[in-house]
Design a protein around this nucleic acid. Structure first.
Lengths: 222, 222
DNA sequence: CCTCGACCGGGGAAAAACCCCCTTTTTCCA
DNA sequence: TGGAAAAAGGGGGTTTTTCCCCGGTCGAGG
């Protein structure tokens, strides 16, 4: 189920760093002797992408970063899945942590690569994706597999609720739990419940390590 | 005081991400019609660089990342300044924060660029540096200038002592202040002194915001 | 001499962490 | 479709840690 088997495969790149975009283009062109791929355009963020998608040809494959200003990778992918479900998304991110990988997998991306990639990696990924398949880095595969297995094993983790997410973000600030309870419109005891639940689930020892986890998974940017 | 006015200027790149290295090479070659620059070799970390420097021609200019495994940018620059003072260093980093910029400026680097650079930026920087000058991004210039002015003004900040730095790193972990006092071999009250001093100096409201600051300036990576 | 930096200490209020308990609503699945 | 289980919210009370003000010693150096 190839996309346009005889015309070049149209690619767009969404990343806030010019250097990365140029690096990606170079990696794509290196070894692409048959001009199978053509990079249509680049965008600096999800917002930028939304504008550019209106005026241009729709790409077949979208290379997507996660950490971006305005509208990050998760939001952008959500939006794309809803309004352009035909575009296949390959995430290329600095983040190799479970949370990021799982969220993206759940959003239905076609591939997940680290930014530490070689020419072959990106070509294998592009080939797999353009022929209807999927391509995950070793690390992403590992995360996905271990998620499929461990339901009762070890520490069952992840999947925070929206309220827990919100609490976790606020716990990274200088607010006390009383103040957090106030802005979240629940009692302090409820907040304490969220805290305890997260402590238990993730093994946090104190608020600092919890906040650090939030940073690590990109939920909060200091 | 040009370096080899008629032979190409030899460049080496130190960055742990292949993508960045390839992107940099592409940016350097783009617009370098006269082949003024040649990229000698790439290294993935300071440690890797040390090995490669022994076996190869010494480059004129070194493009240097900060966040790297094994031996980070600061260590690597310190080492280079000591053992290869002739190599001119251009830092190209994700970090645009005061701490990082100031530390690098103090170590005597010739330039500081964000990773958000265009072709012209890198060429201006390389020209300036190879002809004996300096090149700082807008942000780096701003930081340097405001550091020259504000000695008594506003909040005199920065310049943490080595002990304070160490404490700040440990304060990002799950250790209590008692435990931190233990590993730092001082009394809890001394630790409390460090804490209070940093709180006053930087206006932290609680340990979480202090830890977040440590992350922001790159002192601790969650 | 006397200040400054690094260290140590008391006491106390507040916040955070950690227990146990409870109700209501939603989900889900046999 | 009925009931069990989970998720969401709340409560009382304890211990530990954090935070903040106050004070002190000691040695180095202008």
């Amino acid at each position: 189920m190839n996309i346009h088997p005889f015309s070049p495969i149209k690619i767009a790149i969404v990343d806030d760093h010019n250097l990365f975009r140029k690096g990606l283009i170079k990696l794509i062109n290196l070894g692409d002797t048959h001009r199978r791929y053509s990079v249509l355009f680049e965008a600096e963020s999800g917002l930028d992408l939304k504008e550019k998608l209106n005026k241009r040809t729709i790409p077949d494959i979208m290379l997507m970063d996660i950490d971006m200003p305005d509208m990050d990778g998760y939001e952008t992918v959500s939006w794309l899945r809803q309004f352009h479900p035909g575009i296949r998304i390959l995430v290329i991110s600095m983040f190799e942590n479970e949370e990021a990988i799982l969220r993206m997998l759940q959003l239905g991306v076609r591939g997940y690569l680290s930014k530490d990639i070689e020419v072959e990696d990106i070509h294998h990924a592009l080939e797999a994706i353009s022929s209807g398949g999927y391509y995950y880095s070793e690390r992403a595969t590992e995360v996905r597999d271990q998620r499929l297995n461990n339901s009762s094993a070890g520490q069952q983790a992840q999947n925070m609720s929206e309220r827990e997410r919100e609490f976790l973000k606020l716990a990274c600030t200088d607010m006390t739990y009383v103040q957090i309870a106030d802005v979240m419109n629940v009692s302090v005891k409820t907040i304490d419940g969220y805290r305890e639940e997260l402590f238990k689930r993730f093994g946090f020892k104190n608020r600092v390590t919890m906040a650090m986890y939030a940073v690590k998974i990109g939920l909060y940017t200091p």
